[in-house]
Simulated scan of single mutants.
Amino acid sequence: MSRRPKPSPRPAATAACPCGLPASYRECCGRLHRGELAAGTAEQLMRSRYSAFVVGDEAYLLRTWAAATRPPSVDFDLELRWQRLEVLASSEGGAFHSEGTVTFRAHFVHQGEEGVMSERSAFVRENGAWVYRDALELS
């Protein structure tokens, strides 16, 4: 059974973007979430997907998931709060690539305990757009 996030307002127009780049949510990942802009690189897509988890944007997450690996819904943990994102490395995933990977750490608090999720995410192009394919969890 999928758990739906509590209604979560989008960050204020001038609030810092959760993805960690020095821009407001409205001008950074918010543009991708609203469909005004498509991710130009695998890293930009990964950052926008992290922000979508922060704000509970299931539609964006599903829209940017590869058809072959896309689940029917996103299972949000209602007790988990994402704190910050660290992009550690990226490989390929640019304008002239069809695949790319991004390695990152996502810091969170779950039931009062701090934690870190480390992952190398794989991205591919489908119909010209970057989408998330799958991930290899790192130790």
Results as ranks from 00 to 15, higher is better:
residue 4 R to V: 09
residue 5 P to M: 12
residue 6 K to S: 07
residue 9 P to V: 08
residue 10 R to E: 13
residue 10 R to V: 05
residue 11 P to F: 03
residue 12 A to H: 13
residue 13 A to I: 10
residue 15 A to S: 15
residue 15 A to E: 15
residue 25 Y to C: 09
residue 25 Y to D: 08
residue 29 C to H: 10
residue 31 R to T: 12
residue 34 R to G: 08
residue 36 E to L: 14
residue 36 E to Q: 13
residue 38 A to M: 07
residue 39 A to W: 06
residue 40 G to W: 09
residue 40 G to T: 10
residue 40 G to D: 14
residue 43 E to M: 04
residue 47 R to V: 03
residue 48 S to Y: 12
residue 54 V to D: 07
residue 55 V to N: 01
residue 59 A to V: 10
residue 61 L to W: 06
residue 65 W to F: 15
residue 69 T to L: 06
residue 70 R to T: 05
residue 71 P to S: 05
residue 71 P to R: 03
residue 72 P to W: 04
residue 75 D to F: 05
residue 76 F to Y: 15
residue 76 F to K: 07
residue 79 E to K: 12
residue 81 R to C: 06
residue 82 W to P: 05
residue 82 W to M: 07
residue 83 Q to F: 00
residue 84 R to K: 13
residue 88 L to K: 13
residue 89 A to W: 00
residue 92 E to F: 01
residue 94 G to W: 02
residue 96 F to I: 07
residue 98 S to V: 09
residue 98 S to W: 11
residue 99 E to L: 15
residue 102 V to K: 01
residue 105 R to Q: 12
residue 106 A to Q: 00
residue 108 F to S: 13
residue 109 V to W: 01
residue 114 E to H: 05
residue 116 V to N: 08
residue 117 M to D: 06
residue 117 M to F: 11
residue 125 R to T: 04
residue 125 R to Y: 09
residue 127 N to C: 03
residue 127 N to Q: 14
residue 130 W to K: 05
residue 131 V to E: 01
residue 131 V to T: 03
residue 133 R to A: 10
residue 134 D to Q: 14
residue 136 L to V: 12
residue 138 L to M: 07
residue 139 S to N: 12
residue 139 S to D: 14
